[in-house]
């Protein structure tokens, strides 16, 4: 996994709530057997007409907006557990998703793929949208080390939560498997004392 450094970027606004993973990447694109290429179909049905031409009114097709940060309404990533949603977002070029609320499985999937979910208060989310509305090129700083998200133009900043373990993983580019593999002996001894009916 790529190490996560501090990011200074403009942001793409998606002020819609309950964005489910079927919208992020529709099921018909889940037939690939690798992690690559999902970015091309990110938000496919919102982004393209059935004939493949771009829908002018969708934010990703508006050249005014760009950046590594996606800002969305509450309960982002609900629905299916498909990790393809995280692959599509990072494949497209996002490194951070900001919302006032994330669905649990999506949050885990994002973290496992070096995509940082930043959960902020409703009022701060509103402030971010306003900053982008005032200036589509408004810049934001995402500092994982300090767990701070800052609106550069106004200087407003909010602290965000992340587990110390996940933070360490992102900063160093480690993944969970390396860690779990190192527990092999512990797992074996756990199995010794485990209720037999459960594993047979």
């Amino acid at each position: 996994m790529e190490k996560f450094h501090t990011i200074l970027s403009s942001a793409v606004p998606l002020p819609i709530e309950e964005v489910d993973t079927d919208q992020i990447i529709p099921a018909r694109f889940l037939k690939a057997t690798t992690r690559e290429g999902f970015g091309d179909n990110l938000f496919c049905d919102w982004r393209f007409h059935p004939d493949g031409s771009p829908k002018a009114d969708f934010v990703l097709n508006n050249p005014v907006y760009s950046g590594q940060v996606l800002v969305a309404g509450r309960n982002f990533g609900c629905g299916s557990s498909r990790e393809h949603a995280a692959w599509a977002l990072s494949g497209y070029g996002f490194r951070v998703v900001v919302s006032s609320f994330f669905a649990d499985i999506f949050r885990g999937n994002a973290l496992n793929n070096g995509l940082l979910p930043v959960q902020v208060s409703d009022s701060f989310l509103h402030a971010i949208f306003s900053a982008i509305e005032a200036n589509p090129k408004a810049m934001f700083e995402v500092n994982l080390e300090n767990q701070a998200f800052t609106i550069i133009s106004t200087g407003q900043s909010e602290h965000f939560e992340i587990s110390p373990y996940k933070k360490m993983c992102l900063l160093n580019g480690y993944d969970d498997i390396d860690f779990l593999l190192s527990l092999k002996d512990k797992v074996a001894s756990f199995e010794q004392g485990h209720e037999k009916v459960l594993i047979q």
Partner: peptide, 19 residues
């Protein structure tokens, strides 16, 4: 339900990391 990275964790270690 889990994501694919976690599927790999379970295949490799029979464990997942969960809060």
């Amino acid at each position: 339900g889990i994501g694919t990275s976690e599927v790999e964790q379970v295949l490799a270690t029979q464990c997942v990391l969960q809060k």
